[in-house]
């Protein structure tokens, strides 16, 4: 459990593309389906704009998990999906270096009407956070107590 530091509920940042995840989150709302309140969804044009450090900095600021909900193969921008995947793949070793559980960052494709996948992701990430707790503890501990990445 992650109660040893940073009291309060863990925070999940969701970077959701306007043409995919953000609209998908809106569909979830339209369907009045319930999910956890620790989720903060920010609209994004295309996550390809975020450099690797952006994610690391976010974790360091106290974001406990980041879900990047992009449009996958439906991405309206040429090469956007591939570029995003490349960047995320580069973030994982950087996380390891800092002792951050790599499961805290997930890239998922969510379409405009993907209500079920959206809910599944939010549930899963909260289950994970229940298990591994706040990111601050990991960062404080450094890379030696790194949780096994799945």
């Amino acid at each position: 459990m992650g109660q040893e530091s940073n009291a309060g509920e863990p925070k999940v940042l969701i970077l959701a593309t306007l043409s995919g995840g953000y609209a998908g989150a809106d569909s979830v709302g339209q369907a009045h389906a319930e999910y956890a309140t620790n989720t903060y969804i920010l609209p994004v044009v295309c996550p390809a704009m975020f450099p690797e450090e952006f994610y690391i900095e976010s974790f360091e600021r106290g974001i406990d998990a980041i879900l990047v909900m992009f449009s996958g193969t439906d991405c309206p921008y040429k090469g956007g999906a591939e570029r995003t995947a490349q960047i995320i793949n580069k973030v994982y070793p950087m996380m390891k270096e800092r002792g951050i559980d790599t499961r805290r960052l997930r890239l998922v494709a969510i379409c405009t009407v993907c209500t079920k996948p959206f809910l599944k992701e939010v549930t899963q990430v909260n289950e994970l956070l229940d298990e591994i707790g706040h990111v601050a503890a990991e960062i404080a501990a450094g890379p030696s107590v790194q949780a096994p990445a799945s």
Binding site: V45, C46, A48, M49, F50, P51, E52, G79, R83
Partner: peptide, 9 residues
């Protein structure tokens, strides 16, 4: 420019 932001990162 499509505004995807790939250049930003």
């Amino acid at each position: 420019c499509a505004g995807c932001g790939a250049c930003v990162s």
